[in-house]
């Protein structure tokens, strides 16, 4: 092994000969990198949602008090969810639009599980404001759905973006009908 000995700390001149010191440096460096990673991860992960936060990640909604044409807003994961019992005209209006006219093309059928129940996140896809349109007195925008007052985004009766700066349709959260009059969001 005598040929591998090079005075410590200095790279061999000219030749690309590997030395034992290179090996030591590599293994020690790799070991240190793994160690630092193992120490840093608990710090980073402690900032991710804690278990009590994750435990609150689903919400039950009773649909029975919501009459046709009405809407309710429920909280899910700290955000508003719009649940609207749509009128036949609103459904028809949403389905009559050619997909080519849409910025984020999506048929209405793909956004609902039962035709009259529209469930969307009440968070504008532009910069996160809550659009108006839940109360009968609210401005609903030019397409009869929702209107975001922050920067003027118009959503239609399927919650799809039609005009304004928002890039995407209102997000449809994961939900299931646990009975005819009850859904669980999340």
């Amino acid at each position: 092994m005598a040929e591998a000995v090079v005075s410590h700390g200095t790279a061999p001149e000219g030749g690309a000969k590997e030395t034992r010191r290179d090996f030591l440096k590599l293994t020690a460096g790799a070991f240190a990198a793994v160690g630092v990673g193992a120490v840093v991860w608990p710090f980073i992960h402690s900032m991710n949602p804690a278990r009590d936060v994750l435990a609150l990640a689903s919400t039950e909604v009773d649909l029975s008090p919501i009459a046709t044409g009405q809407a309710v807003t429920v909280m899910w994961r700290g955000k508003p969810v719009f649940v609207r019992n749509r009128t036949p005209q609103e459904i028809e209006q949403a389905r009559a639009v050619p997909l080519g006219e849409l910025r984020d093309p999506q048929p209405d059928q793909a956004r609902v599980q039962r035709d009259n129940w529209l469930v969307v996140l009440g968070v504008c896809t532009h910069l996160g404001c809550v659009p108006l349109g839940q109360k009968p007195t609210d401005a609903r925008g030019e397409y009869g759905g929702w209107f975001c007052p922050c920067h003027g985004s118009h959503y239609d009766t399927s919650g799809r973006i039609r005009r304004g700066p928002a890039p995407l349709n209102l997000e449809v959260p994961t939900y299931t009908f646990t009975s005819d009059t009850q859904i669980r969001i999340g």
């Binding site: 608990p42 710090f43 804690a50 278990r51 009590d52």
Partner: peptide, 12 residues
């Protein structure tokens, strides 16, 4: 809560 729910809270 740090001890039980926060990720690695017990360690910190």
């Amino acid at each position: 809560r740090i001890m039980r729910d926060v990720n690695y809270g017990w360690l910190l």
